[in-house]
Design a protein around this nucleic acid. Structure first.
Lengths: 345, 345
DNA sequence: CACACGGGAGAGAGCGCTCTCGGCCGGTGG
DNA sequence: CCACCGGCCGAGAGCGCTCTCTCCCGTGTG
């Protein structure tokens, strides 16, 4: 823990270059309206002193922070133990650093954390927020909208509030589900079942809707509600085999669920994919490629989703600064999903 | 993207409470040396206006930022796709919010990112840094030390530089490995093999050392070098069966490797644990409990590791401010690991 | 009853930066 | 030749806060 050395200031650079602070500032911020020889002198001085602008001083006057908060609301520890957020963060990070913005991470669990996050965002310490809130009844999105900070949501928010025009980015859960089920149909399967995800999340609802788009007239017993976990997948699969022993295909709401289902099928002596074809969702590595047989699944580009969220937020901020009357951004952007064929279907 | 409302300032609170800015400042920062009735008046005014201090203005004068950077150096995308960092971040986040500090996340891939991170840290925008650097030859730790920012490393850094007294937190990789191997011995296994991790990482080296502590005199052919991946585990297991078909136990450097090994063993008709016992490392969910059979493994408390890193950094910072001559913090803190018995050994 | 003492409150400087404004200088048109 | 205009640069104010310094008032003492 060494003592921090005194950092060079704009003043110091100005003195060394023999110009005024204002000129150094201009050069540091793009160099518009400064003649070339001066620009060079200043650049050299900056280099020589190793000058780095003091962000605090800058944002004190500009009222911008070049920082955005990433809020991950995650009641269950389990959720964060999967690679999903890691990939999102990666995408977000790339986009933010490309725009020279910082990523301030806010993790929450429980209600008091919500208040803390809302206060932080309302405090105006960041230019905007990227929010991941998984559950329909989560109060956080409301709190955040109340904070008056530009926000982009990850995943479609709950539409129960119809005035809600929140910007969001989501995967094409419904379309992906349709593609999966159609694939099963094209394989000649007749009794296609669906193990749902936790239906308090829009992604689970959308995947179920996609299933229904294709299998609207299916026996309702072929739909079993579950919770996105492997254990839940096991339970659901047993239930399914009990209800309809003749089931010949399963579309599981995610890969974890599918892995549970696979285990039960193996236990019960059903061959996959010969007797029962199985499709998952997410293409979550290292799960999907580690099952036996490797899982056919619907891939979503999670990293791209993060990148796009950040991009949307930043361009929104820019537009806000330049032109308040620009046409609104589309409220939602849906990223395509693709079917990845492996061994299980 | 609404317009940001004008935020109330200290001045405004002071006016409302009928006191000076200085007094409000005192109250906001703990209220020492202000008489009770005034404290009350100020508190009410703060409440009424919804005043939140402007961090930029504050840190401009205090030269503290109440922010620490978390640097995750991660050349391969694969690494971040596992739950490890998520849990670390969770632990770090808890500790930081308890101390009212922000978490600024810096993800890197590639050399130019290193320079960027070093510049950022040297720029003095944060009070300290928590650094995860997995590889022995990574130049990042050196750059970061050069930046002169208080730092705590996650995982034992490379000791090739003997003057290095970096503070770090690590799991007891060596002890955990010993416990695993001893367990195999206690099961009566005689031909115990080790599939190593990527040996450019200290964790892999330490686990190998732990294996050797117990099995020092083993046939060197029972040690196969691998890379922490499932595919690597498969390759290594085949190699192992080829070299020593009579192998009766495997200690794999992590759970992913173990899962690959399990698959090969099943393919080759070996029963687990009857013919070959298998132990992993990490207790990575949802891998360890999803294998067939469920994996016996060595658990490390990853979240606690993150929490402890943050705690060490913060107390170090505090001490730095209060008393430069306090005894140095211990360079390394090692967290215990525990053997988790499941079905595979 | 005058004086020293100490604790609580206010005044004011300034952290490092940006940004507006005004002045200077060179070039052009009348 | 002079007024004018436009492009560059510098001067200076001020962002919101903390912190030192000073002043004031109440209490205890000679």
């Amino acid at each position: 823990m060494t003592e921090t050395a005194p950092r060079p200031t704009l003043e110091a650079v100005a003195a060394l270059a023999g110009v005024s602070r204002a000129t150094v500032s201009r050069v540091v911020n793009g160099g518009e309206g400064v003649r070339e020889p001066l620009v060079q002198r200043v650049r050299r001085a900056v280099e020589e002193l190793g000058y780095v602008p003091n962000r605090a001083a800058r944002s004190l006057v500009t009222r911008r922070h070049d920082a955005v908060a990433v809020v991950i609301a995650e009641p269950e520890t389990r959720v964060f133990a999967d690679p999903f957020f890691g990939l999102q963060l990666r995408g977000i990070s790339k986009e933010l650093t490309a725009h020279d913005s910082q990523l301030v991470l806010l993790l929450t669990e429980g209600r008091d954390d919500h208040a803390r996050v809302a206060r932080y965002l309302a405090g105006g310490h960041v230019d905007g927020a990227l929010v991941f809130s998984l559950h329909l009844d989560d109060p956080l999105p409301g709190l955040i909208r109340g904070a008056g900070v530009p926000t982009v949501f990850g995943g479609r928010p709950d539409w129960s509030d119809t005035s809600d025009r929140s910007v969001y980015v989501d995967s094409d859960n419904r379309g992906g589900a349709r593609a999966a089920v159609r694939h099963l149909v094209s394989l000649g399967r007749k009794r296609i079942a669906h193990i749902t995800g936790a239906l308090d999340q829009t992604s689970a609802v959308d995947r179920l809707d996609g299933f229904r788009d294709v299998m609207g007239d299916a026996d309702p017993r072929l739909i079993v509600e579950s919770d996105f976990t492997p254990a839940g997948g096991e339970r659901a699969m047993r239930e399914l085999l009990d209800r309809r022993p003749d089931v010949d295909a399963v579309f599981a709401a995610n890969d974890l669920t599918a892995s549970g289902a696979l285990r039960v099928l193996r236990e019960c002596g059903r061959r996959v994919p010969e007797d029962v074809a199985v499709i998952g969702f997410d293409d979550m590595l290292p799960v999907a490629d580690q099952t036996d047989p490797p899982l056919t699944t619907v891939r979503q580009d999670i990293e791209e989703m993060g990148r796009l969220m950040a991009s949307l937020l930043l361009t929104g901020l820019d537009r806000g600064h330049r032109d308040k009357n620009a046409p609104d951004a589309p409220p939602g952007v849906i990223l395509p999903t693709t079917l990845v064929r492996r061994g299980s279907a």
